[in-house]
């Protein structure tokens, strides 16, 4: 039972880590700090605009696969994989 608790804690801390990045690339870089970031450029894109219309979406994709990969490792470590 205690190992199940540790497993769940490991999951929660991984989720929190991922959601912090999720929050940063969309709400922080794409909305709250957009004006500041727009002073920087990425090719023809203003950086804040790029995060709002491109960068956040790419990051979301990477995040979901990263989570799946890490969780799969954690499943094995705690011996709870199917």
């Amino acid at each position: 039972m205690s190992s199940n608790n540790d497993y769940w804690k490991a999951n929660i801390s991984l989720i929190l880590k991922c959601l912090i990045i999720w929050f940063c690339v969309s709400y922080l870089f794409g909305i709250v700090l957009v004006e500041e970031l727009n002073n920087l450029r990425l090719g023809g894109y203003k950086l804040g605009f790029w995060f709002a219309q491109q960068g956040s979406i790419y990051t979301f994709v990477v995040l979901v696969f990263y989570y799946a990969k890490k969780m799969s490792d954690i499943d094995k470590r705690f011996n709870v994989d199917e």
């Binding site: 959601l19 999720w22 969309s26 794409g30 709002a52 219309q53 956040s56 979406i57 979301f60 979901v64």
Partner: peptide, 10 residues
Amino acid sequence: FLMGWTGGYV
């Protein structure tokens, strides 16, 4: 719409 309709999948 771009962020909202993709970020939900996370």
